[in-house]
Design a protein around this nucleic acid. Structure first.
Lengths: 197, 197
DNA sequence: GCGATGACAGATATTGAAATCTGTCATCGC
DNA sequence: GCGATGACAGATTTCAATATCTGTCATCGC
């Protein structure tokens, strides 16, 4: 542990340290005191920037989830047939979640904990995701590919129907061998359903 | 606690007592000693009929899950359009799960525990359910309503896509107000997908 | 003045000793 | 002979004492 460096204590530095601590100890063991120690400050100083330990965890998780949003929203707003973009979007989401669960298990566990507790952050993430699905559905309606009335209800239905492939509670199954065909089958069924309208 | 009645100790009586004990204490607190006490015998006698505590829990849960199978399989094998029967089947399944979660929370918790541990019993239940879905899909193919190649893969996809409405990990959400429209939206989407083929 | 500090109270987690439970089996009584 | 028993070993759970953590705030030093 280095002595306090002369850089000022900022929310960004605290988040960085929190992420490290969470990765090292996991959400069950990581403490605010650990974070302060990693930064070479007292834990009181951390509380100057974040209201509570929960707020810290949420800020880290929000940042972590945001990485995902960018590439997905690019797909959602791209050109081409809505059905193709939808499939691409779902596949990319599934791949990203699977990668995160494997590569960053402790941060993934943090996210799972938030999701289980019905955190505001998790709810917001879901809303963002459904919003992007809705965008794709709307563009499909605009282009005449789809004809349903309520794009948002359809976006939510797509989100619900693919829960197995993005809800963190299912992460333990994502490494099973038959997940890819299962995903493909659900995807195909849903796309057929959309085109039918 | 009545003294040992003169009835012989049978697996059926033990299951009955186990169910009572599970309902009273819940899966976390119920012990084999409790079951034996309820029957007025020593716990060694219970082990004469069931290999382990796990085997007991599984036998109780299997019996409990079987109640569901009958009415569902009647729907699966009934006459009429496959799409209607499928909707009926899914709706009945959802209603049954929701009812059990509310009326019998301790036995439901036992089932949830088994499902979480990847128990053989839970896997068998899933196979039975997918089998019934496959039956409906096959009858739809036979009647010309549907035209997909692989009925079983479709059955599995239907099961996966409706996980939110039957997987016990989602039970806490089943009492939320927007579950019924969400179910209807997913159902409609899936049925459209089937008819499209 | 202002951010940082560390002592503090109450809440939560850890620990280790004691109690209970699971599963086995030699023995009992009918 | 045969199902039932209860003592037993090892695993697991409980419980209470202890330690650590969270969140606050009066005080410090720059």
């Amino acid at each position: 542990m280095p002595p306090p460096p002369e850089t000022p204590l900022t929310p960004a530095r605290i988040l960085e340290a929190t992420e490290d601590v969470l990765r090292r100890y996991g959400p069950a063991k990581a403490t605010v005191v650990d974070v302060a120690r990693a930064l070479g400050v007292s834990h009181g100083s951390v509380y100057r920037h974040f209201r509570s330990k929960t707020a810290l965890r949420e800020a880290v998780t929000a940042r972590w989830l945001d990485q995902e949003h960018d590439s997905l929203s690019r797909i959602a707003r791209a050109k081409g047939p809505a059905a193709d973009r939808l499939e691409d979007w779902l596949l990319t989401l599934f791949a990203a979640k699977r990668r995160k669960a494997g590569v960053d298990p402790e941060l993934f566990a943090t996210y799972l904990a938030l999701a289980t507790e019905n955190s505001e952050i998790a709810a917001r993430h879901v809303e963002t995701m459904i919003g992007q699905l809705t965008t794709i559905v709307e563009s499909g309606i605009a282009s005449g590919e789809f004809t349903m009335r309520d794009a948002r209800a359809t976006g939510r239905a797509l989100w619900d129907a693919t829960a197995q492939f993005h809800d963190p509670v299912y992460a333990p199954r994502w490494s099973e061998p038959d997940m890819d065909p299962a995903f493909a089958a659900v995807c195909e069924l849903l796309l057929d359903g959309l085109r039918a309208r």
